[in-house]
Design a protein around this nucleic acid. Sequence first.
DNA 1: CGGCTGGTTGATACCGCTCAAATAATGTGG
DNA 2: CCACATTATTTGAGCGGTATCAACCAGCCG
Lengths: 266, 266
Amino acid sequence: MIPSSLKSQTSVDVVRPLAPRQLKLVRDATQGGQTAGLASASPCANCVMHWACITGAVPSAQQERLDRMVHTWRKVGKGESLFRAGDTFHALYAIRSGSFKTVVSHPNGTSHVTGFQLSGETLGLDGIAADRHTCDAVALEDSTVCSMPFHCVEDLCQDIRPLQRRLHQLMAEEIVRESGLMLLLAGLTAETRVATFLLNLSTRMQDRGYSGSSFTLRMTREEIGSYLGMQLETVSRALSRFQREGWIAVSGKQIGIVKKSALSEL
Amino acid sequence: MIPSSLKSQTSVDVVRPLAPRQLKLVRDATQGGQTAGLASASPCANCVMHWACITGAVPSAQQERLDRMVHTWRKVGKGESLFRAGDTFHALYAIRSGSFKTVVSHPNGTSHVTGFQLSGETLGLDGIAADRHTCDAVALEDSTVCSMPFHCVEDLCQDIRPLQRRLHQLMAEEIVRESGLMLLLAGLTAETRVATFLLNLSTRMQDRGYSGSSFTLRMTREEIGSYLGMQLETVSRALSRFQREGWIAVSGKQIGIVKKSALSEL
DNA sequence: CGGCTGGTTGATACCGCTCAAATAATGTGG
DNA sequence: CCACATTATTTGAGCGGTATCAACCAGCCG
């Protein structure tokens, strides 16, 4: 189980184990009560992010076992860490709302953003390797996550084949994602990287029901730069150039995609 | 230590399903007969790479089921592909002898080496994500691999917890490895990358019973460059510089590590 | 309001890429 | 086994894309 003593920061790293009944209510609150009428049977099935979450693979007949597993949730305030490199690994986390960045650090002091995670995506896979996390997961905005104790996940995988399959896919997708990113970092120019980044973010926003052509960046230019292996000034210049060309509209963190084709042809 | 008395022919993509008894004999041949006296019980357990292989997690009581799973092996000649991007995913491969590179390609034609795999390491994890491989796996020298049909692996995982655990670790290790590589690509200078590469290879050779201070590169400067995100000339210059400084001894593909500390302090 | 973080833009330096040429290593056919 | 073709490696010279340094601006919050 998740010890409630998990590194608590300023205020918000509170883990709340709740009885299923209470949990339902809390979850409904998270969703602004929109699904209150439906929420009786199975909290996980009613989650707005169910479609993207690892738990989506569990057949409805076994939802009950799922809800027993996913029985804690957690708020993480903007700038706070869900876990840090070196923390012992307990659980995988499904992002219910908000977004995160993952950061790895080199002994020499430099650090690098290895990914941005949106709602529905999973955090913590890195911890499986050595029972210890190897990166920091930091919230880019006030966020909520569901905790899935990993030994419970492994237990469930024994009985629910689709879940096993899904977990394997999830990890493999992460492997593929990273190798794609390496190709980006190693081979392409700064502008191409920024363009690719915008397009990727665009489709992911669209998948979540937001507009793919107008969205808000939750991360700073510096974080984008770190992710893409360049300086923040270079990111800024690339965005300015794209705007001059009429391909995008930039206003601070607000991004509008005007000419997607131009970006993808870089 | 790694006996590759395996001669490669041109037509090597041969998969040979064998009865267990025959298999034993073939394997013993693969090992140069060194373990012939011991090989009666369980071929997998007698593999020289068992310690590093995913199958090392299977308790001896269940070796027999393992041997039923790992019942095909395959030679891959230098320069040939074990699988290619786009191939449908069937199996994971454990490298029994030799070494490989994995290469991903960008639509625009550029390609990038995402990793080098040595004996005992596993290939094919990328295919799990979409039942289709996303990279090419190319032998850097004449090599042999054991095929492990993935549906069999998943079946066995249901019954053998340690194997499930090991598979998860394996995938997570790959995730961690890649995020470390991204840090390398994004943040460090060309010389630092080359130094890190040499040190990494050195420890992996040592783990396999070779000297960590004197070994042969199986890949070209160009492949190293692709892996590290730089041009082959830059790799060559870095190696030359390290030699001028007296930190390493280079003679073509033969590398001697003279002053490990200097390399790690870059 | 004034400090502060985040973002934009400009000037300059430098690392690593590109092009080029010479040399070494490897493979092939006779 | 040699002669030749091919591939791999080293080294040099010059250019260009990014980093770096610096100045300035815009929100934001106490």
